[in-house]
């Protein structure tokens, strides 16, 4: 009796917890379809106009208001974000996977040092890493731009890929590789036919994680972005600092959609493997 009550209480709490986590997100999505240009909080009908607004099309809502935020800047920011994410994902996936393989396969003296080194960027407060990178780039005379952002993102994303691939390697059965060697495959063939297919979900998962974090990173990018290398999160942050506008809801909703797609892809891959 008492147990059932406790269970109910926990259930109710769990639901409240999920509401706390998701209500703000649902709210943004709802507001992005609200056609009230004066007060977001008052629902005055369903509209797609904010989406048209951010894409630069004139709509009924923004004809007589000053809401139009320059679409060119937004698109440039999206482009910058995608370029940065594409490069950082590639570099950090390759390097992170190589490191995971090295630390899993071989025993050597500096092993623990490398483990520590790889965990460090993940626990380092973003602001410290951002400042350190800024000071570093300035002191070696490198100009800030897309290159500096790519380098900056790689310094911590390698660690994320490393962790994901390592977890996958840890669950691997050693006898498979031994069997492959016993059957006469050389090490390269064994790697390509046995090891790589086994860790592939981990590598793809790590890459997705790196991509999504790179697309979303604000703090580190904030310090090492140049004048004309604004990324999407930086662009929204800038907009937000200047004041709350309804079309931010639309941009945020599109970003949410993007995040959900990539995250679901990751979950699907994990389920299948």
């Amino acid at each position: 009796m008492k147990l059932r009550l406790a269970r109910r209480l926990f259930g109710a709490y769990g639901v409240l917890f999920l509401v706390f986590v998701y209500a703000p997100i649902v709210m943004i999505v709802a507001f992005s379809f609200n056609s009230n240009p004066i007060n977001m909080m008052v629902w005055s009908g369903f509209t797609f106009d904010w989406y048209w607004t951010i894409l630069g099309y004139p709509t009924e809502l923004n004809e007589d208001t000053l809401y139009v935020e320059s679409t060119d800047q937004l698109l440039a920011a999206v482009k910058n974000s995608l370029i940065v994410a594409a490069f950082t994902t590639t570099i950090s996936t390759v390097l992170g996977t190589m490191t995971a393989l090295a630390l899993f396969r071989y025993r050597f003296r500096a092993q623990r040092f490398y483990q520590g080194l790889l965990y460090m960027p993940m626990v380092m407060p973003d602001i410290v890493l951002g400042i350190a990178l800024l000071v570093f780039f300035v002191s070696i005379g490198m100009s800030l731009g897309l290159y500096s952002i790519i380098i900056g993102h790689c310094t911590f994303l390698i660690s994320y890929v490393f962790v994901v691939v390592s977890a996958r390697l840890a669950g691997m059965d050693n006898t498979l590789e031994e069997a492959s060697a016993d059957l006469g495959a050389n090490e390269w063939v064994t790697f390509r036919r046995v090891t790589l297919p086994h860790i592939a979900p981990g590598v793809v998962g790590g890459a997705l994680l790196a991509f999504i974090i790179s697309m979303d990173d604000l703090v580190i990018t904030y310090f090492i972005a140049g004048v004309d290398s604004t990324t999407l999160p930086l662009f929204i942050y800038g907009m937000l600092r200047r004041g709350v506008k309804p079309e931010i809801n639309a941009i945020a909703t599109l970003m949410l959609l993007f995040t959900f797609i990539i995250a679901s892809l990751g979950l699907y891959l994990r389920r299948r493997s």
Binding site: I25, L218, L267
Partner: peptide, 30 residues
């Protein structure tokens, strides 16, 4: 699935999540 739901917001852009709270907490907010 629930663990996935609870950790999913980690992947949502920080600026988006905070924008939501600006909307909720500001004087004319939610």
């Amino acid at each position: 699935f629930i663990v996935f739901l609870i950790t999913l917001p980690f992947f949502i852009s920080l600026v988006v999540r905070l924008f939501a709270w600006v909307l909720i907490l500001r004087p004319t907010g939610f």
